[in-house]
Design a binder for these strands. Structure first.
Ligand SMILES: [Mn+2]
Ligand SMILES: [Mn+2]
Ligand SMILES: [Zn+2]
Ligand SMILES: [Zn+2]
Lengths: 146, 146
DNA sequence: AAGGTAGGTGAGAATCGTTGTCAAATTGGC
DNA sequence: GCCAATTTGACAACGATTCTCACCTACCTT
């Protein structure tokens, strides 16, 4: 699982005009931090973790890196109720999340049913180029037992 | 549609301990502003509208009122991509939104299919007390035609 | 290997939506 | 009217995120 040394965001294009994305120490560190977590974390939390680990990375850089990764769909991001952006490594396929409100435990869920429903609804109303956001929040088994 | 004069947030309880929610000019103004719009608006936009109308209401009050209304499920609220909270009057039943990214035109959609799916998924994973967020974004017919 | 350059970094300042403060104003019940 | 509880709003404070910009660094070109 942690086999590839591929640097997040790296684009192996050739010739002139290729957008270079450099595998810097900072980008590797952020990517590694994401691997260390199983649940969603904020940019600030990741920044703090790296600082503690002694691999300090500037806060601006952490923000930039996370956004770049999210834009490239290499990590998932969502917003907490308080409007804070949180990030998590994710599988490559389209999916949604079932998150424990109490401990943050996250389960990736797929929903062909929902995917079909969303396109159908959008079509009925004449909307095109449709995207959707769907997140489930609840209390996981562990947290339910006090 | 604009028949009732019921003040948003009003709770008609009796006896000692009843939490009074007063129908002030400010609260009426915010409620009226929401009726004037058909799509989602931010607290600041509503504040500006009221100011222009000459029914100026303090920004803090606008924020407070909108949040109170949203907490009471009397209006819908969601977050833009930039993290800003926007509000809209809504029907009383549980529903979701299909919003035009371009002009903001909003359609309320219901989805027994989705509701069923979410509880099923949550149950399968042992999550209880589940809630969900689901929003659809697309381009409406009008905006699609240039 | 040296140099050139586009891309990357980070400390600190700036944004900006939102929340907190608190004295003054308003409301509803008596 | 009178009063206690509630509400208001100008203004300060917050806090997450973004911007600035001088300094680095990876990497391509001689
Ligand atoms: Mn989906
Ligand atoms: Mn639903
Ligand atoms: Zn949990
Ligand atoms: Zn539109």
């Amino acid at each position: 699982m942690t086999s590839t040394d591929r640097v997040p965001g790296s684009v192996s294009e050739h010739g002139p005009g290729a957008t270079a994305v450099r595998p810097t120490r900072q980008r590797r560190a952020v990517a590694a931090a994401l691997e260390a977590f199983d649940d969603f974390r904020s940019a600030q939390e990741i920044h703090a973790l790296l600082r503690d680990r002694g691999e300090s990375v500037g806060l601006s850089t952490v923000y930039r890196t996370l956004q770049t990764l999210a834009d490239a769909d290499e990590i998932d991001s969502l917003r907490t109720e308080t409007g804070e952006s949180i990030y998590r490594r994710c599988s490559g396929t389209h999916h949604h999340h079932l998150v424990c409100r109490s401990c943050g435990a996250t389960v990736e869920v797929e929903g062909p049913t929902v995917e079909r429903w969303t396109s159908a609804i959008a079509g009925e109303h004449g909307y095109t180029d449709v995207s959707h956001t769907l997140e489930l929040f609840g209390t996981c088994r562990a947290c339910a037992g006090r």
